[in-house]
Design a protein around this nucleic acid. Structure first.
Ligand SMILES: [Mn+2]
Ligand SMILES: [Mn+2]
Ligand SMILES: [Mn+2]
Ligand SMILES: [Mn+2]
Lengths: 254, 254
DNA sequence: ATTCTTATTTTGATCCATCAAAATACAGTG
DNA sequence: CACTGTATTTTGATGGATCAAAATAAGAAT
């Protein structure tokens, strides 16, 4: 019974609150993230506060209550399972699935979600390496370091990409930096605000620090199955911008 | 940019207009079909008329314009492709997919729809045997006779079931009368307002005329591929209420 | 032709989500 | 401390979708 607007605000709030110290988000931030004028966010947040979903500190900011966070996590679960489904079953590119899931996340029922989850084999992470909350609303966000502050020389596996922007994701994929890829930071050039990353045998790629900060890694020795989807794990030939599918669910002509 | 309410009204209108002589539907009928009070339907229909999607005869009824019908057919296409997808890929029961598709039909993009269509092999009919409009909004509704006015003795194939009610569909399926099944009308008992239908070796099933009228058939000699989905074509063992899937898209644990 | 009955339309409200623009609080800065 | 710039909240309005209840049109019945 929560409207899809409510679901959107809660999910966004959850996302914006991740990765900042303060548990209160300034309303201006929320408004910009939601693409509405500030007054709209204020009105909405008041309504959410009345519904017991957020805690609202006028002039201070907004945070999630326990109930609000639960709801948010269920929406996040739907969003991420749908994303993975779109990539893995329908073969969409990972750069577009966030946008597609924005609507679908409000339309998939519990029943359909359960089937999707089963079909995908109860996955733990979405195509971007983001963890998928359980059906009871639990999530563990592993805290990882990014390519921006990762020690040079050691072999790392890309685990997670924090930006859903299509252009950025396409770029990341073209450079072979999708989750599962094994890379090594060659060196940091603080003066240039950049890092050099080597992936496979190619010449190193230069990444600005702000871009590098959005690509999270883990030691290449860490267990793989818990973290990144298999699909991303091997390097591709590949200037195709569609991720390769191992097998189609069934032949195109059946 | 049509809102999902507009899409719902147009699809419903299309559905209600099928199978009646008059091309104008009384607003009361539309209101009841939409589950709103009559005044709401009047207001909405006026808005649709202003948008050039329907033709409104005050006190006479409402019909679709060419543009309105085009839009309706695209919604119907989404609805039916989604239904088939839910049955065939996610393994949902055909008795629930209409309700599920009610929301999803507004959330699937052109892109996703195209993938679904391809994955299903450009199907011609949905799980209920209803024809799926093409992506350019064309549909051919074969006019068929029902079990209610079907000559006794001849072998018939079930092609289409006109009622989306879950209880009715479950019943139909339990009796082995799903699309694809081969049946014979044993006799009509006009006094009892009923027909007896034999399916396979079992004892004949009695169907009231109003129920029988909702089950459309075609001569068992007619080409099968154009009409009914393969899945329904063979009899099942089967007290499972989930339709069997030939193969899962991929193993549950992959 | 008058009256009754029923379908339809009108009218007046409400709820949700949004915007534009005016008002206000706050955090510095001079 | 008064001043100014920015973030936030208020206020007033709008569009979409709905309902309840009153008004009205048409058809059927007397
Ligand atoms: Mn959304
Ligand atoms: Mn994601
Ligand atoms: Mn719908
Ligand atoms: Mn159907």
């Amino acid at each position: 019974m929560p409207t899809s607007t409510v679901e959107n605000y809660l999910r966004r709030l959850y996302l914006e609150l991740r990765g900042r110290a303060d548990p209160l988000l300034p309303l201006g931030r929320l408004a910009r993230a939601m693409g509405v004028v500030p007054g709209t966010a204020t009105a909405m947040v008041k309504a959410l506060a009345d519904a017991g979903l957020v805690q609202y500190e006028p002039r201070g900011g907004v945070g999630l209550t326990a109930r609000g966070e639960q709801l948010a996590l269920h929406v996040v679960r739907r969003h991420r399972l749908v994303e993975l489904f779109l990539v893995q079953v329908l073969g969409l590119d990972w750069s577009v699935v966030d946008a597609e899931a924005e609507d679908l996340e409000h339309a998939v029922s519990e029943r359909v979600l359960e089937r999707i989850d089963a079909l995908l084999g109860r996955p733990k992470v979405d195509p971007h390496g983001d963890p998928i909350p359980t059906s009871r609303g639990q999530i563990e966000e592993p805290r990882r370091i990014s390519l921006a502050d990762c020690p040079p020389g050691r072999s790392q596996r890309i685990a997670q990409v924090l930006d859903q922007d299509a252009a950025f994701l396409s770029f990341v994929q073209r450079q072979g930096l999708a989750p599962g890829a094994i890379v090594t930071v060659v060196r940091r050039q603080n003066a240039a605000d950049a890092v050099s990353v080597r992936v496979g045998q190619q010449a190193p790629v230069a990444l600005g620090l702000s871009a590098a900060a959005k690509v999270l890694v883990e030691p290449a020795s860490a267990p793989r199955h818990l973290t990144s989807p298999r699909r991303h794990s091997e390097r591709r030939d590949s200037r195709s911008h569609t991720l390769p599918r191992k097998r189609r669910p069934f032949p195109a002509v059946s």
